[in-house]
């Protein structure tokens, strides 16, 4: 982050991180089938880095577990995310990062929907439409500079 540039939102609200999921006895049991649940999906996306701050989407409350809906049997996942400010220019990028993370982390039987929490962003509809359009997502990922930014959001923090 260069010294001179100003951030869109320099002092955002910080929320607490949820701890690691607690291990249950059944998790170690070979014979028990663990279904894919909301918390598991939330764990996938909560650690995604914000494109602007050295903070995770969870810490900025962009994603919350209550806005994650999964149905393992029907193979569907629905995510709603909340930009920190209504004019956040990063909304599409954040949505794309969430989508890509899930595409990489879930079996391909799942249908993945990523949307902005209703009423939290100025151009909600446009962003939702872009994120729902398979071809546009695929095309975006062909763009190497965009892919690099997405990968940065998805990489585990370094330096």
């Amino acid at each position: 982050m260069s010294g001179g540039t100003r951030l869109e939102n320099a002092n955002p609200m910080i929320f607490q991180r949820s701890g690691e999921r607690l291990l249950k006895e059944t998790d170690e049991d070979e014979d028990v089938h663990d279904p894919i649940d909301d918390r598991e999906i939330f764990d996938l996306i909560r650690t995604i880095n914000d494109p602007e701050h050295p903070l995770s989407l969870e810490e900025l409350n962009v994603v919350e577990q209550v806005r994650v809906k999964v149905n393992d049997a029907e193979s569907t996942v629905g995510i709603e995310f909340t930009p920190t400010i209504p004019h956040c220019s990063m909304a599409t990028l954040i949505g794309l990062s969430i989508k890509v993370k899930l595409l990489r982390s879930l079996p391909d039987r799942f249908k993945i929907d990523v949307n902005i929490t209703p009423g939290t962003h100025a151009s909600e509809e446009a962003v939702n439409k872009q994120l729902a359009d398979k071809e546009r997502v695929a095309a975006a990922l062909e763009n190497s500079s965009l892919l690099e930014v997405v990968n940065q959001c998805l990489s585990t923090r370094s330096i």
């Binding site: 998790d27 089938h33 663990d34 894919i36 598991e40």
Partner: peptide, 12 residues
């Protein structure tokens, strides 16, 4: 891709 659909969460 296959272990992504493993029945055990720890493996996934």
């Amino acid at each position: 891709a296959r272990p992504l659909d493993d029945k055990k969460r720890l493996v996934r």
